[in-house]
Design a binder for these strands. Sequence first.
DNA 1: AATCCGTGGGC
DNA 2: TGCCCAAGGAT
Length: 348
Amino acid sequence: MKTPKPSPAKLLAWYDIHRRVFPWRALPGERPDPYRVWLSEMMLQQTTVATVGPYFTAFLAKWPRVQDLARAEREDILRAWSGLGYYRRAHALHEAAQQVVTEHDGVFPSSEEALLRLPGCGPYTAAAVAAIAFNQSANVVDGNVERVVARLFAFEMPLPKGRPVLRALAATLVPNARGGDYAQARMDLGSTVCTPRLPACETCPWRATCLAHRLGTETTFPRRTTSKTPRRRLCGFAFVIRDAKGLVLLRLRPPKGLLGGTLGVPTSPWEESPVTLGTARSHAPTAARWTLMPEPVRHVFSHFDLELQVAVATTAKPLEGRWVAPEDFPTEALSTLMRKVLARAGVG
DNA sequence: AATCCGTGGGC
DNA sequence: TGCCCAAGGAT
């Protein structure tokens, strides 16, 4: 039996009632600020709405316009980004802001093509900014939309291989008016109604045209091919060393790679097999009388688990790095991992 | 194309 | 506890 096409009008009528209010989202009748839309989308990449909220507010208060952000120091941006994760986004954010100022006279471009040239702005973010900030009928596809559309069509091709086909299917549903509302409506539907585990199909405006619902197999979509690479578990030592004044030695990590550009205590190399302090101490910033904290810090990254033993000592020697007072930790560009290490050492 | 890149919350 | 997922992008 043939299913009629899911109607944009029904979804938009639902959105007009159930739309959510966010600090970055314009109220009905308000003109969206492209800078705010872009800033929020950069933060929302693989990050939940609840987590982003305070960061967005803080960034906007500190750097109200793209020109302010472009002029900022990179480290100040990393300070404000501290704890949000995926620190490459913070670097890209700064570079993109500078690019908007120097190449677009401080005015955000409105075409997906131009937006795609900004660092950190990929297919999703370019489409989202074009739609939400400029009301274009862009095909905005995030994880929510993938799930919604896969269920609508009982889409059998497993992701990620089937992603291009699914995106094309999603594009056929985009109306030529209210592009911004439609993009946000599709994502709101996915995050509040068409959820991964327990979808609230009874309240869904697209229930009548959803093939998976008709089949009673909603939660089996989208299909996925499971990645077979086993998760690694790495071990190492973190060295927390203080001077006579109680200042802690911190070093800036290289700008690229894991936790790029953030501040942290020196560590030994991280390895697959457990190491002893006797071996690891050759990587310490200096020879000292190390006290080992009884419990290691365990931290979960996106692609491996880390277990760091925390060694603590005091020294009078001058060492390479920055000596930072614990009272300044809250505003420093520390990763969550390093905040855990400092807390475990009793200096956080 | 598969891997790298953070963190927090839900169940 | 362990796994999944979250307004993905770069290489």
